[in-house]
Simulated assay, not measured.
Amino acid sequence: MTQMSHDEILAGRLGEAGYEARTVQKAVGGVVAVAGLVTLEDGTELFAKTLLAPDGEPDRDVFPVESAGLSELRDLGGATTPDVLYASSRILVLERMRPRRDDERFWEQLAHMLAALHKSTVSDRFGWHRDGWLGRLRQDNTWETDGHTFFAERRILRWLAEPPVEAAFTREECQALERLCAALPDLIPAQPPSLTHGDLWQENLVATPAGAPVLIDPAVSYSWPEADLSMLWCSPRPPVSERFFAVYEEIAPLHDGWRDRMPLLHLRELLSIVAHDADDWGAAEAVRRTIAPFRRVGGTPPGTAQR
């Protein structure tokens, strides 16, 4: 039997949802879903994506959760997100957006949007009303009142039980991660949570037809705003994006030493990459560099929080 191409699978699942696709152009940039730019028989342009689950694996709520996250970012935080046209366990269909232009105006607008999101959604609890997804793996959003506990248990230590992470790191390295988590109150200033995008790297930034920034593919929760900044700071990005950080800090001033904290907050993303058991783009080595001061008891941590 001939194996169906990814485009054929996506077109078939669009048909199940009541959309008759004339063409499906494979989208680039994502690393988990099969996605495409779709033109329907009536000429309407859409964006759609699906997951290729292994045989026998139950359907997941990835797309209903993503849809809820997009709505939350828009309705509560005023962020621009695509309209969700259809969401099921099999497929997500969105209003079609455009590639972004990497110029200063785009990154300045993004800074205004993200600062407004963070400033307008301050909460007294970390987490969310439902668990989410980071890639193919569950994101534990259980409510917690202490930010250091939340970040340690739900965003760092939760990855240590994943088999690829167990295989990638020695017991000594895992102990170093545990020491780092125990030291978080001395490394990261106490600060309230806000609604965060949760997976804010450059591939999850697109644009409206007019060129304004649009957020896609969220992994939302109420967390430290600096966690969103760490994704942009530590992931590959164009040089012009430096403008984002300058404008964001003008609108929403950050605690002293925030740049030094970016690698600590990025550990969650690095460990997730390792846990997905693919080419980790050097993620495991980046983890080792960050935890190096904690590899021995009594090691000197890289700075302390500004209280």
Rank of each mutant, 00 (worst) to 15 (best):
R296F: 15
G69R: 02
A161P: 00
V32Y: 11
R100T: 08
P164K: 10
E41G: 04
D42S: 13
T39L: 00
R154L: 03
D131F: 08
H112W: 10
A17C: 06
A152V: 08
S120D: 12
L271P: 06
M231R: 09
R22I: 13
F106T: 03
L10D: 00
A176Q: 05
E178C: 10
P163N: 08
K26G: 13
E45L: 08
V297P: 12
W224K: 14
W107Q: 04
P236T: 14
I156R: 11
R261F: 02
W107S: 10
M1K: 11
L40P: 00
V165W: 09
V240T: 14
R154W: 00
H112P: 06
T149P: 01
L40Y: 01
E269R: 12
G77E: 00
E72F: 02
H118P: 03
W281E: 10
F245G: 11
A167G: 06
Y248I: 11
Q191R: 15
T39N: 02
A111D: 08
S235Q: 02
L157V: 06
R261I: 09
G36L: 02
A79F: 05
L46T: 11
M262C: 13
R154P: 00
R13P: 06
E153S: 05
W128E: 04
V34M: 12
D199H: 12
R105Q: 07
L110E: 03
